[in-house]
Design a protein around this nucleic acid. Sequence first.
DNA 1: TGTGAATGTAAGCACCGATTACACGGATTG
DNA 2: CAATCCGTGTAATCGGTGCTTACATTCACA
Lengths: 220, 220
Amino acid sequence: MRSAAKSSAAKPRRRATAPKPYHHGDLRRVLIDAALQLVGEGGAEAVSVREAARRAGVSPGAPFRHFPSRDALMQAVAEEAQRRFRAEIEAALAAAPGDPLGRFRCLGLAYLRWAMRNPTHFEIISSRRFFDHDRADAISRDNAELIELTERTLAEAFAAGQLRPADLKQVQIAGRALVYGFARMNIDGHFPRWGVAGPEAERTAEAILDLFIEGIASRP
Amino acid sequence: MRSAAKSSAAKPRRRATAPKPYHHGDLRRVLIDAALQLVGEGGAEAVSVREAARRAGVSPGAPFRHFPSRDALMQAVAEEAQRRFRAEIEAALAAAPGDPLGRFRCLGLAYLRWAMRNPTHFEIISSRRFFDHDRADAISRDNAELIELTERTLAEAFAAGQLRPADLKQVQIAGRALVYGFARMNIDGHFPRWGVAGPEAERTAEAILDLFIEGIASRP
DNA sequence: TGTGAATGTAAGCACCGATTACACGGATTG
DNA sequence: CAATCCGTGTAATCGGTGCTTACATTCACA
């Protein structure tokens, strides 16, 4: 089951002379990457500290020098995923100027697309189940900035007369629930007809986003 | 191959006393209830076969006479939860006649309320992660009937001229995504201001549902 | 250059899911 | 009534997991 593939030999190494440096170059980074890969392969449940250590070519106890617990590792993984998520959305939004409502649409589309193309990564940044509830952390911070971005865009759209009168806070929550729900349903297997990703899924995602936008837009 | 019945039997243990019945009355039922309780206490991850057996007052191996694996137990638990979910929604809908769009609103409200008041139960019926993907099972069947109910109600509303022209299939998916997303965000801790349940949460749920309905309703 | 701190190793604990061999006892049947 | 069979529970055990502790090695800085 476990294909050892003993001759990995592809490990990034700084030191050419030493065949096997006792100290790993950047074990923390490598562990996060291995865990990210595990998440991508089998979901969050598939991540085990031992397996991450195995892939990093290191003993089972080594990761605990960098992460006090499995949850801490998962949290670091989620922070990395959230960072990528936010970066991609902001990039999409920056590359798509235009009227505020159109920008809102781009925002939603980028959200949906990333979630559908990175389902397991979306899953771990979605659920707070994996983390200590005490720490709001970088995840909530990143998330808060995304929410703020959404609210700003909506406010601009309203100021431009593109929205019908409504409580913008509620519009923001409803929009968030819509895209979150669609992404999550997709991941959770509620649309058996298509896979988690694929043209039909993305077309439907676009359609329901447009339906929502038509619902909140001011009409002639 | 079965039973050598080798020696002269000679029962190693006499039946000195029978303080409690060897055979549990209905272990399967009791195990499902114990697991449901565990889900209610600490989420789906908190369910272990051993703990369920412990609470049923039975040895760690006993549950495997009724469920071939932990997943099978979880599936039975999810089926029970889904049964209750569907029953409550249908009851709420039956008790609330009126115009089709109003019935649609009742449907959504019952969905949201149940999800917010039984968050961990909603969680296990939401994610297909716990089950064999092969089996569509009673869960999908119940879910399909709920979807059908939604579609029927929407079609009635459209026939009554209460909806603006739109693809009803997309409206149904969007509506489902909205309530699913709100319920899931609530459970997943995206609304730190209020708890998973509570008056403010239910008020907000009602508000975004109304926002959505206004968006799809025909306007004068 | 020597030394302490950082980092990885090895061994082991408790818990878990799952399997297997066996013990019990109620229901069936002659 | 009595023998038996099989559904059901027990006990022991296996491999895997998170996590801790004691120890070994190497790096970085005085």
